[in-house]
Nucleic acid binder design. Structure first.
Lengths: 229, 229
DNA sequence: ACAAAAGTGTTAATAATACACCCATGC
DNA sequence: GCATGGGTGTATTATTAACACTTTTGT
């Protein structure tokens, strides 16, 4: 056995992204317990005795959202020895992409959960704002190359929604003609005959994912975001 | 303070890559101490009391190689609860890219260090072979997009060396004409008037990095590896 | 003179960009 | 009939890919 002094608290924290059709959002909790009561925070938890970090992240995400089989990715470890004044804690961060329509509000005694637009993220406890910043960068990086943002979309979605999604993540304006061409060239999308008439008079066709192509291309490089020249 | 049962051992392990002009190599240690005496292993260590994971990685790397200011990147956390039978240990992995010519063999009582070609990695303790596999994938991923492999090269290097380096990392054969053109188009390289006459009769010109351009383009996307179509 | 590795150019195909108008509908 | 957002096409440029011969020099 190794020396006890090498032990440390180990937690995971989840940066959970959603998309409501207009804006990219972050799921945060309001702590109803000490320490740091009544402050906003990421959802997290300690890793339990017989659990891997990934399992802990899945457990915590399910507790908050009711969802399983969610796209989740390990990102940075935050381990500055002074980051948590309540005990030296190393936190392994995960970012998760969920379909906000599938999110079921869980009744959890100690937390109140709420979605925040990325433009209005409140002050968070400890170094959680840094974690969010890191997750946003990671999301931008990854989504410029791989079609992961489709994880945020419901089963049926329109092209204008995808455009808003990418525009929200990158804070840019896309040329819809060129972007549309690139989207369709991936063969990821299947047009349905239904239209979304809520957001316009003309109505926009709903598309679904071609799940075979999606699985195949999930790790492939696709340049979704134009180079800024 | 949080409950003591949430504590766990936390270590870092370093996957250290080098390049000798022909092959990509891995720096491993032979353990001269229990547990797992006389087996090959990655270099690692526990995170100390007042240390962040990054600081621990830097300390461990320096102890083994004598080098500071090395390119190092946090990668996966290995935290399967059964991964280490000597105590539940979570390991944060780092991969490092060093100039093998700058490597100074350190006299360390408990270890014997040696370089292994990627094609001849021995059986390692615990899950260290998985860590190596993960580091190799990460290296491939990252180096296809960013010029990080230059971290492996000495101050002066030839184009044929760069070609061997990329061919070794990806286990492919490159078209040297197209690759050469892409390399030069990055403006990363400065031709010197010296030639390396060791590896051929004609001799190959030495190049240096243009460090301004290198800093500028370090995070930029450059497609070094052709798409397999 | 020949072997061994270095170096160099052209063409064709593909992908990326810039850009502007018509369409369908609800009011 | 008009305002709103949805949808489409083309021309230009830039990038990538395929492909083979000449150069240098040590032996």
């Amino acid at each position: 056995m190794y020396p006890e002094t090498c032990k440390s608290f180990v937690a995971i924290d989840c940066i959970i992204f959603g998309f409501d059709g207009e804006d990219v959002k972050l799921l945060l909790i309001h702590r109803g317990f000490e320490p740091l009561k009544d402050q906003w925070s990421l959802m997290g938890g300690f890793i339990e005795e017989m659990e891997s970090p990934d399992e802990a992240a899945i457990r915590v995400l399910k507790k908050l959202t009711g969802l399983e089989d969610v796209y989740m990715e390990q990102m940075d470890v935050f381990g500055n020895p002074n980051r948590d004044p309540y005990g030296k804690t190393i936190s392994i961060c995960y970012f998760a992409l969920i379909d906000i329509q599938k999110y079921k509000h869980q009744i959890i005694n100690d937390y109140r959960a709420a979605w925040f637009s990325l433009k209005e993220v409140p002050e968070l406890i400890l170094d959680h704002n840094d974690m969010v910043a890191s997750a946003r960068n990671r999301l931008k990086y990854k989504a410029a190359l791989h079609p992961i943002l489709f994880e945020l979309l419901p089963d049926k979605f329109t092209i204008p929604q995808i455009v808003s999604l990418y525009e929200g993540v990158y804070d840019i304006i896309l040329d819809k003609r060129n972007f549309n061409r690139k989207l369709l060239s991936t063969k990821l999308l299947v047009k349905t005959s239904e239209k979304d008439k809520l957001n316009s008079k003309k109505g926009a066709y709903y598309f679904k994912l071609n799940s075979d192509v999606y699985k195949e291309k999930f790790s492939a490089f696709i340049n979704f975001i134009p180079n800024p020249n």
